[in-house]
Deep mutational scan, measured.
Amino acid sequence: RPMNAFMVWARIHRPALAKANPAANNAEISVQLGLEWNKLSEEQKKPYYDEAQKIKE
């Protein structure tokens, strides 16, 4: 299954978030990633939607 825009973004940002929160488990990191993603504007998300579309094609 191809990655969606959030997954493209999260793949880039997960390592830094995990390093900054070494005690957090994957579920907690995923929740935090979701919160951070939701704070982004549509303009900030656009490159990730574009990349996800390329992956689908």
Rank of each mutant, 00 (worst) to 15 (best):
L40D: 00
D50W: 07
N4D: 14
E51W: 11
V31A: 14
G34H: 15
K54W: 08
S30Q: 13
G34K: 15
N38A: 15
E57H: 10
Q32C: 08
M3D: 10
Q44E: 14
R11K: 14
S41R: 04
P47H: 03
L17N: 02
K19H: 09
Y48R: 00
E36S: 07
K45L: 02
F6E: 02
A5Y: 01
R11S: 14
V31K: 14
K56C: 13
M7N: 09
N4P: 03
N25L: 05
A10E: 10
A27M: 10
L17I: 14
Y48Q: 00
L17K: 03
A10W: 05
N26E: 12
Q44C: 05
Y49P: 00
M3F: 12
P22M: 03
P2L: 13
P22S: 03
V8F: 11
A52T: 03
A18S: 12
K56D: 09
N21C: 06
N26Q: 14
Y48P: 00
M7E: 13
E42N: 12
N4L: 12
A20E: 10
I29H: 02
Q32K: 12
E28H: 06
I55E: 07
M3L: 11
P22I: 03
V31N: 07
A23Y: 14
A27Y: 14
I29F: 02
A24R: 05
D50R: 10
A52M: 05
E36V: 09
R11C: 06
K54N: 10
W9V: 00
K19W: 09
N21M: 06
Y49R: 12
P47S: 05
A52V: 07
N25D: 11
G34T: 15
I55C: 06
V8L: 08
S41I: 03
S41L: 04
V31P: 01
V31G: 03
V8T: 03
H13L: 04
K39Q: 07
K19Q: 12
E51L: 12
M3K: 07
K56T: 14
P47A: 05
A23V: 07
N4M: 11
P47R: 07
R1M: 14
L33R: 00
L40V: 01
M3Q: 10
W37L: 00
Q44H: 08
Q44L: 08
R1I: 13
A24S: 09
A23T: 12
S30F: 13
K56P: 08
Q32S: 06
E28Y: 09
R1L: 13
V8N: 03
N25Q: 06
I55V: 07
Y49E: 09
L33C: 04
E43Y: 08
I55A: 04
E51Q: 10
E42I: 12
D50A: 11
P15E: 13
K19F: 10
A10L: 05
W37I: 00
L35E: 10
L40R: 01
K46Q: 14
K46M: 08
S41D: 09
S41E: 04
N21E: 03
G34I: 15
G34N: 14
A5F: 01
N38M: 12
E43D: 12
N25C: 04
I55N: 09
N38D: 12
A5S: 02
P2Q: 11
Q53G: 05
E43A: 14
I12R: 07
P47C: 05
E51H: 06
E57F: 07
A10P: 00
A16T: 11
R14D: 00
S41T: 13
N25K: 08
Q32P: 00
L17S: 02
E36F: 08
